[in-house]
Write a protein that binds this DNA or RNA. Sequence first.
DNA 1: ACTATCCCCTGACGGC
DNA 2: TGCCGTCAGGGGATAG
Length: 271
Amino acid sequence: MPELPEVQNIIEDLRPKISGKIIKGAQILSCRPGGNEYRLLDLVGNHVIRTVSRKGKCIIFELSEGYKLLFHLGMTGQLLFRKDDGRGETDSHTRVVFFLDGNDHLVFNDMRRFGWIELQPRETKTSGYVGRLGADALTIDSEAFKRTVHLRKRTIKGVLLDQSVISGIGNIYADESLFEAGIHPLRRADTLTETELNALYQAIRTVLKKAISYGGSTVKDYKLPDGSSGSFQNQHKVYQRAGKACLRCGAKIIRLKVSGRGTCVCLKCQD
DNA sequence: ACTATCCCCTGACGGC
DNA sequence: TGCCGTCAGGGGATAG
């Protein structure tokens, strides 16, 4: 599932390829029944892509005249850049194709349809999903992180997954960061000590930055815009390793459910 | 403010 | 082989 490191790789891959390009049009191949997220796509004609950025897991294109094009990849979304070289560039999961100048294409695939696209007209105040997002997990400073986390009475994993508190961390990196910091996912956030909060803050940065440098985690469907896969899945210490030996201490990794999500933990390393 | 639960969706997988 | 139930999970909605 695309989380912060995957989305960061996507925008870094896309930025030099599409910055300054004109979106000439979009073709909607299929959208969710009753969904209205693609309704505004026909407004895209002839807007220039000024910047490519992200906040949390949300990809943000700033277009000319103040428009913004937002993408959320959900569980299985892909944003692929294709040169028009005659090869088939769509498949049965393609939802939208954007046509850029120079016959380049941007293809949005989403097998499970949890992703969405939204075009925000100019003057739209930041609201909706992006407006509700908390500080980005790689941007937030140590003091702000500790302050906001320490206020919460929920489980620490629940806090990390809550995009309105800190944005960008999903199930993979919540588990990996908590393991790295030696903290049990069911700990109440407000019981974490200063030392533990510092460790967690650093663990998140370490894990996310390392994951970015590995191209992200390709667990099932994630691909970079050039079609390549990430390799951080080979570096996972706990995620999807239930029943296997902890790489640090050898104890068996167990699986539980926290905040409705499958959670892998080493009871010996995390408390 | 927080938890629990359901829903969306499709492919993989296990049981029979 | 094939049918059927279950699971996976980001985020929204709703009830408690």
